[in-house]
Design a protein around this nucleic acid. Structure first.
Lengths: 253, 253
DNA sequence: CGTCCTATTGATCCTGGTCAATAGGTGTGG
DNA sequence: CCACACCTATTGACCAGGATCAATAGGACG
C-alpha cells in the first residue's frame, strides 16, 4: 500500500511543527535555525510503560525532553532502596545532571507509553557557536533546574502541605502547556507520590480524601480537579507566618 | 612608610598563588590562561559577620567562590519565614542559580568574617571562547549543582540520619580541601542547622549529645570529631535495606 | 475468573515538635 | 573589669502528626 511522502505522523516529529516548540529549544529561533536543530534531535524514541529510557550509571549520550507521556526519575541507593527524585511531564527537560560525571545519576522510567526527543549534547554545543542564543538557552535551563531543586529541597512542611505543593506544581505545569490549571491527571500511583514526597502510602490516600471532604479538590480516576486554589495556596504557607511573637530581629541586618 | 611592591597579602589574591586554585576555575589551566582569568575576578571582597554578600532579588552580577569564612544561603518566603537552603564553605561556588532570572533567588549571609572572589559571568563566557575547557568547567559546575541539590532533596530520613548526613557532607568538604575528614569546625549555630535540616533546635541538640554518648562523635566548642565513620555511614542508610520481605520486583524491569 | 497489586480505612505506637525552665555565652555599657 | 541583658544551648515533660500494622475493597491483567 502506498503512503504519502510525508505523513502527518512524520510531520509532527519535526521541531517546526511540534506542539511543544514554544516551550522547547526552538523558542524564538528563526525557521532556518530550527532546521539545523532538527538534525541533531532524535525524535523517534518511544518508551513503553515500566521501561527505562536510561539507567543509573549509564553513559551520558545527550539529554531529553518529554514529548508525551510521563517519567519517574529514580535514584537507587547503595542499599537497594529506591527514591523518586522527580517526575517529568511533556515539555520537561532532563538528563543534564549527568554532564559532570558523564553518567546518569538516576534511572528514568516511563509511567505510561511515552515519547521523548533526545538531543545530542556535543552537537548542540557546536551548534551553539553558530546560534548564540542557544548557549544562553542551555545555561538558563541548567540554572533553572538548579534553582528549582534547591527550593524543592525545603524540608519542614506537614504531609498536607507537601501534598498540596505537589498538586500546585502539577497545576502550574499543566497551565504552562496551555491546559487547565484546575484539572489534570495524575500519571503516577499513590505509592509513587508517597515515595517522592517521603510519606506513607496511607497518608497520601488519607490526605486526598481529607482535601476532597473539605471541597478543596475533587479526585476520581487519577484525574484531579482543584476546586479552591486560593485556600490550597494559603494552606501551603507554613505556620501562617508565625506572627505570635514577632521578634525584633526578623530582618537581615 | 614604604611597602614592598607586592606584599604577601596581595600575592595571595592572585589566582596563581591561591591556596584553593586546585579546587577552583584555574584547575588544569596553563599559567597564561590563569593570568587572563585573574583579570575578570574580583578577589578583594570581604564580608563581615552577619552581613549579606547579596540579597534576594538583587540583580545578578556574577557568581562567587568562597575564599575563607562561611555563608548561609537564605530564602525568604512570602510569609517572611526564612529557610536556609545551603551553607557555603571555602572552595564552594554559588550564585549561578540566578542566571535564568538575572536575580538572586536567595540571600547570602556571612556566618563569620569571610572573603570571596566575584567572577564576572559575561566576561567569563567571553573568555570561554578563547579557553574551551572553561566552557566545560562552567557546564560541569552547573550540572554538579543540579545533581547535588536533586539528591539533597531526598525526604524520608529520621532526624538522626539527616544530622549524620549533614556531618558527613561537611567531612567530605573538609577532606576535599585537604584537611581532616574526621575533624572540622561548625561555623553555624544549632539554630541554623535546625532550620536547614527542618528540625527543631532541641532535636539538633539532643541528637548531638546522643551521638556523643554513643562515642560516634565528639563535639566541643563548635569543633566536631567523627570517631566512627563506619557506623555513622551505616546509620544513614535508611531502614537497613528493609530485607524483611524481599519482594520479587525490587528491580527495574 | 482468579491472582496479584494498589487503594482505602481503622487502630496503635513512636519520633520529633512544642512548651517550659535553666544554664551557658557573648557583647555592651557603666 | 564586672554586671547586666540578651541570645543560644541544653534538658525534661508532654503531645500530636504521621508511620506502621492489619484487614478489606477495588482494579488490572493474564
Amino acid at each position: 500500500m502506498s503512503v504519502p511522502p510525508l505523513s502527518l505522523q512524520q510531520l509532527k516529529l519535526k521541531c517546526q511543527h511540534c506542539s511543544l516548540k514554544s516551550l522547547c529549544i526552538p523558542v524564538g529561533l528563526p525557521a532556518a535555525d530550527i532546521r539545523l536543530l532538527e538534525k541533531i534531535v532524535n525524535s523517534q524514541i518511544t518508551i513503553h510503560k515500566g521501561k527505562a529510557l536510561f539507567s543509573q550509571d549509564q553513559a551520558f549520550q545527550g539529554f531529553y525532553t518529554v514529548r508525551s507521556g510521563a517519567f519517574k526519575y529514580v535514584y537507587q541507593t547503595p542499599t537497594s532502596q529506591d527514591q523518586i527524585l522527580a517526575f517529568y511531564l511533556p515539555g520537561d527537560f532532563f538528563g543534564l545532571d549527568a554532564l559532570h560525571t558523564e553518567k546518569h545519576p538516576a534511572t528514568a522510567i516511563a509511567l505510561q507509553e511515552s515519547s521523548v526527543c533526545q538531543v545530542d549534547f556535543d552537537q548542540l554545543l557546536k551548534l551553539s557557536h553558530q546560534i548564540p542564543s542557544l548557549q544562553r538557552f542551555i545555561l538558563n535551563l541548567m540554572s533553572e533546574q538548579t534553582c528549582e531543586s534547591l527550593t524543592m529541597a525545603l524540608p519542614n512542611q506537614t504531609a498536607e502541605q507537601r501534598m498540596i505543593g505537589f498538586l500546585l506544581q502539577l497545576s502550574e505545569h499543566s497551565e504552562r502547556r496551555g491546559y487547565s490549571s484546575k484539572q489534570f491527571s495524575l500519571p503516577m500511583q499513590n505509592k509513587e507520590i508517597a515515595n517522592h514526597l517521603g510519606l506513607a502510602v496511607e497518608t497520601v490516600s488519607r490526605t486526598f480524601t481529607d482535601l476532597a471532604q473539605h471541597n478543596l479538590i475533587d479526585i476520581s480516576q487519577k484525574t484531579v480537579t482543584l476546586l479552591d486554589l486560593e485556600t490550597l495556596r494559603a494552606r501551603t504557607r507554613l505556620n501562617q507566618a508565625s506572627s505570635k511573637k514577632a521578634p525584633p530581629n526578623n530582618r537581615f541586618s
